[in-house]
Design a protein around this nucleic acid. Structure first.
Lengths: 202, 202
DNA sequence: TAACCGATTGGCAGTCACTGTCAGGCTGCC
DNA sequence: GGCAGCCTGACAGTGACTGCCAATCGGTTA
């Protein structure tokens, strides 16, 4: 039924794929533009659909929820995170491993400006933040087995410990990106991340 | 029902107040019951309102959102958290201070069973989790000034560091409560919290 | 080239959380 | 007893999201 996708690079095979990709991109760009111009809550799906030239129904077929319109391939984030972490050498420590994952995800943004805009919207829009946090929670859950094996299993409760460690890494990423946005995008997020880690772990 | 509650603040004398409190309690109990029986997403506002004997409009006047129906006075959580932390001695360390706050909030639940039921619903319902996380984020933001003054201000970026530290505390609380629920409510959450902290901070 | 088949689309109606409004009822206080 | 003001319920509307169905488009086959 579904032929292999030529994925990221190379031309999509069929016309359908090309049309799909075009529509998807059009929708995404329209959405991000409107969100930036008038705010997330003030932009309705109807408006995005109208300006992108598709029906609401189609828009929802491309992107299941309004939130999905921000950050287009957020599934990619999760995937890259998992991949990066599972590729780390077996003898690497948890913190090292998590840091690599965070760095890989941050590298996914197309440009510094795009990253800044997305983070800004994310941190300034309550309804968005909620959804994002929820998605992140799912990432954390997926990461659990990958981290659990690297954690010192002396006293039991590795589950709790792993969860705490993972959540701490995300917490530092949060604090770092928030500060980064507050600074108008000056400096490197990873530097801030390291600083946060130092503050937490001493 | 049992409304002898002249309550702490003196006299909720008027009939209105009493009626209000009664209705509020009735709604809350109905909601929690239905949530537990059939799940959060499967319970509609219409149903809660019907079974509680009020109109939807009134229900929304008492509780602004569906989420608010869980955990009734979540504002109380935030308040207690802030109060406890600002009451800590000035020379207490951040981690100590945060631990006290967490303990105080946990002590707010009426009973172990109620706490378990709430945490269970919280951790098992995606839509609820999102709202909860968002509310928590607001707590964190409120805590910021209280913690910032206690943080070593050597290298600047106290904002980022404070955020990270606070978020880490919450992360440990999360991990702890999740594990607690997974264990069916065995043991003490604070013990798990401490264990998580040790895992994170070494 | 024409017919066929499945993928894709748009429109429509419906659900659900949530909000504004408005008339009427009840309470509190003369 | 009566007036003013809070509370309530009913109603209509918005916005995100879903299910359904018929029309259409793309690619494949005869």
């Amino acid at each position: 039924m579904k032929q292999e996708a030529k994925s990221a690079t190379g031309a999509p095979t069929t016309l359908w794929d090309r049309t799909r990709q075009l529509a998807s991109q059009e929708i995404l760009e329209t959405a991000l533009r409107l969100f930036t111009e008038q705010g997330y809550d003030e932009t309705t799906i109807a408006q995005i659909a109208r300006e992108a030239g598709v029906s609401q129904r189609t828009l929802f077929r491309y992107f299941g929820t309004k939130e999905d319109l921000l950050g287009g391939g957020q599934d990619r984030f999760g995937q890259v995170l998992m991949d990066t972490i599972s590729e780390q050498p077996a003898d690497a420590g948890v913190w090292e491993v998590l840091r690599a994952g965070v760095a890989a995800v941050l590298a996914l943004h197309d440009s510094r400006e795009q990253a800044l805009e997305r983070f800004r919207l994310l941190h300034n829009t309550a309804s968005l933040r909620a959804g994002w946090l929820e998605k992140r929670l799912r990432f954390q859950e997926n990461l659990l087995p990958l981290i659990e094996t690297r954690i010192d299993a002396a006293t039991g409760n590795e589950g709790a410990k792993s969860r705490a460690v993972i959540a701490t890494a995300f917490a530092c990423l949060d604090a770092a990106s928030m500060t980064w946005v507050a600074n108008g995008g000056k400096g490197e997020i990873m530097d801030l991340y390291d600083e946060c880690m130092t503050a937490v772990r001493g």
